[in-house]
């Protein structure tokens, strides 16, 4: 049995279930808003009886051969049965209960991490600055980056910079409009409007790119795609500002071998067996590493490049199933 923790709306999950099903595998899908109805975890003698119950179904750990934490908070989020006890106004008690629950939750994911795994729950969000640091140590080229708080420092930068979120893209709604924190160029005029001191912000060297790359990494292999976003003014700074009528050209790409080797090394260091990596390529064919997204979308790479990544992921989850450790 393969367990997939995901979200209700995620077409990649559906596609992979189709491939697993077509190969005769069994999938239990658990969406993040499914309630954990019952926990029965046994350590030591009788561990074979451990199960969790979701959607009226008992899932025995001994039957799970693979676990994929695809997306979402997953089924051990903060609204399982234990929240009944959390219904208290006493702050100390609720904090204590939250800490107790965190231990149980971590243990559940630890047990699942003993199975064949894709993705790593404990690494589902990464620190961009630390990853850039590690990438450079491995020999990847990274853009120069600053985290600044003083207007004076920003004005003194002697290169063109962009800014973007250090965490995830923020989606903020107010006044009946929705705003997304896409990557934006930082002009001198803009810096002039800033107060003397501002909230810590990332300022990153603006790379003049020929095209950018999205690399889907799976179990030691790179599946790469070039995005010709600079052909279109609308997508030149951030390709996610999609042009729907004339989409960016997205084509299969073969990375140089030494770069694939460095990516493999970085992913091992990050303890990730899958993820999406972003690069920019300059006119001089220099590859600038930007970031790794551990739970990135791969459908947007799979389809235009005809890579059948959904099938490859299904194969990964189905094949070479290890012996049960439970």
């Amino acid at each position: 049995m393969i367990v997939i923790a995901t979200r209700k709306i995620d077409s990649s999950t559906n596609d992979i279930i189709d491939w697993i099903d077509g190969k005769g595998g069994t999938v239990v899908r658990v969406d993040e808003d499914n309630t954990l109805q019952r926990l029965h975890i046994v350590s030591g003698k009788g561990a074979n009886n451990s199960f969790i119950q979701v959607n009226q179904q008992k899932i025995y750990f001994k039957d799970i051969v693979a676990f994929w934490h695809r997306k979402g908070q997953s089924f051990f989020a903060d609204h399982p049965a234990y929240s009944l006890q959390l219904d208290t106004n006493h702050v100390d008690i609720s904090e204590e209960l939250a800490q107790e629950w965190a231990i149980v939750k971590e243990y559940l994911f630890f047990l699942l991490s003993q199975k064949r795994n894709l993705g790593n729950y404990f690494k589902s969000s990464l620190n961009k600055l630390i990853v850039q640091h590690q990438a450079q140590a491995i020999g990847l080229t990274i853009p120069q980056a600053f985290v600044l708080t003083a207007k004076e420092d920003a004005l003194n930068l002697d290169l063109e910079v962009i800014t973007k979120a250090l965490s995830e893209v923020a989606i903020i709604s107010f006044d009946d409009a929705t705003y997304c924190s896409y990557t934006t160029e930082v002009t001198q005029d803009f810096i002039q409007t800033l107060p003397e001191n501002f909230f810590p912000a990332l300022m990153q060297e603006k790379i003049v790119k020929k095209y950018e790359l999205r690399v889907f990494y799976l179990d030691g292999k790179c599946y790469s795609m070039a995005i010709f976003s600079q052909l279109d003014q609308q997508t030149a700074v951030d390709f996610r500002v999609y042009n729907m009528t004339k989409p960016n050209r997205t084509v299969p790409y073969q990375l140089p071998q030494d770069l694939e080797e460095k990516i493999d090394k970085l992913m091992h260091e990050l303890q990730l067996n899958t993820g999406s990596l972003d690069f920019m390529v300059t006119q001089d064919n220099e590859f600038y590493f930007l970031e790794v997204n551990p739970v990135g979308q791969f459908g947007m790479v799979s389809l235009p490049c005809n890579y059948y990544l959904e099938k490859k992921i299904a194969d990964y989850l189905l094949n070479n199933q290890p012996e049960n450790h439970a």
Partner: peptide
């Protein structure tokens, strides 16, 4: 100047059904 980076589209067609 780097044609080797741009392979053609793979013409494989597969299905699960």
């Amino acid at each position: 100047d780097t044609p080797e980076f741009f392979p053609p589209l793979d013409m494989t067609w597969q299905t699960y059904s």
